[in-house]
Nucleic acid binder design. Structure first.
Lengths: 330, 330
DNA sequence: GGAACATATGGAATCGATTACATGATCAGG
DNA sequence: CCTGATCATGTAATCGATTCCATATGTTCC
């Protein structure tokens, strides 16, 4: 591999001069510049960012830790992050935590060893050990999806989104409403959305039956299982189902349709996420758009602010959301 | 940031010894080892891969160039790639070409400047300039999705998949078959799948009407547009539609349903891709599973072979595929 | 004509690791 | 007691860039 020294020798100048040509800095005569560029061209020399980073102390790489790569949310978010970061010449180093907290911590260390300029943590469960690790590192970290104490984060407005969805159902006249959630250890999706649901029900003085409150695990199948339980374990069926994710909602819809219960005439269903799926299932699913790509962009923005403007104080950004009314609701 | 020198000073040994402890190599006394480890622990020292790579000439990073990040195919593929690469201690540096050939070339250079150990190119259109650039670089490159001359590639069996799908329709008794493709500049999706369709029609002595051959651009909407043209521009409608991607097929289905034409009684629809969507639209879509994650794994495997076993000779791997029969076909 | 300044270039230290080589101690075997 | 392993550690070069500082040559202005 050809190095700056080769270029220097071949052009008959010092590597200092070559460096000047490369970075367009300092004084270089036109003739020297031409000569050097000519040699660079003919040798196909590409300077090593490696070596440069070692000296300049910045890699122009941002590590992105994802809970899982192949999800719609993740890919939208990464798309947004990349859009913004690439504008500023940053690259993304990907790390897949695979829903595993230990791996998340391991990746933090790994990214640190790669001397990334910053780390974006697309978070699920926030654990004390994780927070501790983050605080020990002196690399800017920005979280997306869950609030992490002490660092900048972009969070979805889970509480209000879920509250609005529930209110919507209630205002449409529903009184018997079922709920399909996920484990409350997931603070945003599990805990907050459930809290909002319960609060809204209470605000409207509606009863909540425990048999109608079920839990799934983020996939379509478990949404169906939860729905089965709701339908089978109680004498009376709810007239509406609020599932905390689109996939859970779609699983529920499948089961409802299998039982020849009409959606939305007999049971309305709503989800959260505005997945591609939600638009094309039938009936189309009423859901909430979380603007994931925008969230990615905003997260990258916070990162850039910390890197470029040396912003120290952690910021918290609350994303807005949009209700999408479709046919699964009446 | 604490360096190996700091550790050396604090532990009262040379940095050579620290390096030995770090890499578990050479001779180090138990006492020295303990001392060094203790200091490392207490300072939270993380060695710089940066500096290490500069010396050892390998970064343990693989660049992955994607035509577009937020697609189902891309995320499945990346998932597969990451699974295999992480087993071998490699990380992924992401590059988004955004369906832009110039950006693809630009990213090749950028990745080269980062001294990645290899590059995986998830390809769409192969252009001569791109091939030239690849050949000039002395970094292992593996392509996925399209065959690139001179380098290892993993390709889907577009021809046979499309031929099988067409035969399937014909054997179900369909004679009037419409086709929704994409631009033939996309060799795999555009050219090969169309060629297979035409070949199969010919083999069964079936006529192909030009009004029934339409083109879209990879999204659901354009599938619908193509379908509208097919239905409106010809006196007689086809009894089956073969769309080269699931999204095109789903767009077509939407339009067919809007016109109150029954799927599959009046028109059957098939796609390719086995997208999540295909399973949950109604009727569910008959499609072809391309095993994207597996393809990602295999691609990573080829890369590992080149890196670890120093395999020189380019290999070509043809992926298998699986027909998924669902309700959109009769 | 010399001080002050702009222009052009190179020498050498530096970033944080690895590693070839040298050196010194310890110990076993003849 | 000497020889040659084996063990333990350190010195210094190296990877490929950037950058501070020194030096040399013009150029300008009083």
């Amino acid at each position: 591999m050809v190095t700056i020294n080769d270029i220097a020798n071949l052009s008959g100048v010092s590597r200092t001069t070559v460096s000047r040509v490369l970075n367009n800095s300092g004084y270089v005569s036109e003739s020297a510049k031409r000569k050097v560029q000519e040699i660079i061209e003919s040798t196909g020399y590409v300077p090593s960012e490696q070596a440069k980073s070692l000296r300049t102390k910045q890699t122009k790489v941002i590590g992105v830790i994802l809970p899982k790569i192949s999800t719609e949310t993740a890919s939208r978010v990464v798309d947004g992050i990349d859009k913004k970061l690439s504008e500023h010449g940053y690259h993304i180093l990907l790390a897949n935590a695979n829903l595993n907290v230990e791996k998340e911590i391991e990746h933090l260390r790994l990214l640190q060893s790669r001397r990334v300029d910053g780390i974006i943590l697309v978070a699920t469960n926030i654990e004390t050990q994780l927070i501790k690790t983050i605080q020990e590192m002196n690399v800017p970290v920005v979280a997306l999806g869950q609030e992490v104490p002490g660092i900048s984060s972009v969070v979805y407005d889970d509480y209000h989104a879920a509250y609005d969805v529930t209110s919507l159902l209630i205002e449409k006249g529903h009184k018997r409403i079922g709920f399909i959630g996920v484990s409350e250890t997931d603070r945003a999706v599990g805990f907050e959305r459930k809290r909002a649901f319960l609060d809204a029900m209470k605000a409207y003085n509606l009863d909540v039956y425990s048999a109608w409150i079920q839990e799934g695990v983020f996939d379509i199948h478990s949404g169906g299982q939860a729905m089965k339980t709701i339908l089978e374990e109680s004498p009376q069926s709810p007239t509406a189902i609020f599932a905390v994710t689109d996939r859970l909602a779609i699983g529920a819809m499948q089961v409802i349709k299998e039982k020849n219960i009409d959606i939305p005439k007999q049971i309305s269903v709503v989800g959260i996420g505005a997945s591609d799926l939600s638009k094309y299932v039938s009936p189309s699913l009423t859901t909430v758009d979380y603007y994931n790509e925008k969230a990615g962009i905003e997260t990258a923005n916070l990162m850039i602010e910390q890197l470029v403007k040396k912003e120290e104080k952690p910021k918290k950004l609350l994303m807005s959301y949009g209700l999408i009314l479709r046919d699964s609701l009446s």
